[in-house]
Amino acid sequence: MSGSLRDQLLKKGLVNKKQVQQAQKADKRKARDNRKAEKVGEEVVVDEARLQAQKAREEKKLRDREFNQQREAERKQRELVAQVKQIIERNAIRPSGEVDYNFVVAGKIKKIRVDAMQQKALSAGRLAIVESAERFVLIPAGAADKISQRLPEAILSQADNSASEPDPDDPYADFQIPDDLMW
């Protein structure tokens, strides 16, 4: 009850002083409880805002970390490509000759012209074929090994002579296929 209304009710005799004091205490208690509730409500709102801000910071850190990892992977890939290109440029042997050497790239048969020594080296696995500046070039097996450690897909063709010992159970072991078979 407001102060003037209390005074009016007290003058008219509808309430006594004790009732007025009890009403004042109740009003004070309600006001104090409301202030506490507002304060708790403000704290809840502040806590929620802090939690949302912290969550946003963590999400941003995660996005930044993923972006940095992606950028680092792209940088490493560019670095590997540059290393492979440099190895090819340093070790490139231009194919030249009158003998056609056929090989398969992405399911298509490609052909380069090599001389007899290059053909034997290709068949023996001592030379490999790579692409440089949209041309096919030959590189020594050592350089091909370095390239295959970095980017295996850069080696277009290299003979595999690791199975030099034939399988004893192979029924065709007596019939060797010549290395320089032309097709």
Rank of each mutant, 00 (worst) to 15 (best):
R71V: 06
V114R: 01
F67V: 11
D33L: 12
G13F: 05
D33C: 02
S2A: 07
V105K: 14
L9A: 04
I88L: 03
G13P: 02
L62R: 12
Q69R: 13
K11G: 10
G125N: 11
L138T: 01
I112T: 07
I139Y: 07
L9Q: 05
P166V: 12
D170V: 05
E89Q: 12
I109P: 00
K61G: 09
A116P: 00
E89N: 13
D170N: 15
F67T: 14
D167V: 08
P152Q: 03
L138E: 01
Q54S: 09
R29Y: 02
E72L: 11
K85C: 10
Q118R: 06
R6G: 14
V99E: 10
L156P: 00
D145S: 13
P168G: 08
R113C: 09
A124F: 07
L151S: 06
G97E: 10
E165M: 11
A128W: 02
V45R: 13
L127N: 12
Q54P: 00
D145G: 05
Y172Q: 14
S96H: 08
V46M: 04
K55F: 12
D145P: 00
E43Y: 09
N34P: 00
P152W: 02
S148K: 03
L5M: 06
R126H: 15
I87K: 10
Q52R: 08
E74Q: 14
R113F: 09
A23L: 14
A82Q: 10
P95H: 02
G107K: 05
I93C: 04
I139V: 15
L14I: 15
D179T: 06
Q24V: 15
K28N: 08
E89W: 00
A141Y: 06
I139G: 10
A53Q: 11
L122Y: 05
L62H: 01
V84P: 01
Y172V: 09
Q8D: 11
E42S: 07
R32H: 06
I155L: 07
L62I: 04
K12P: 01
N91S: 15
V46F: 02
Y172G: 10
D7K: 11
Y101P: 02
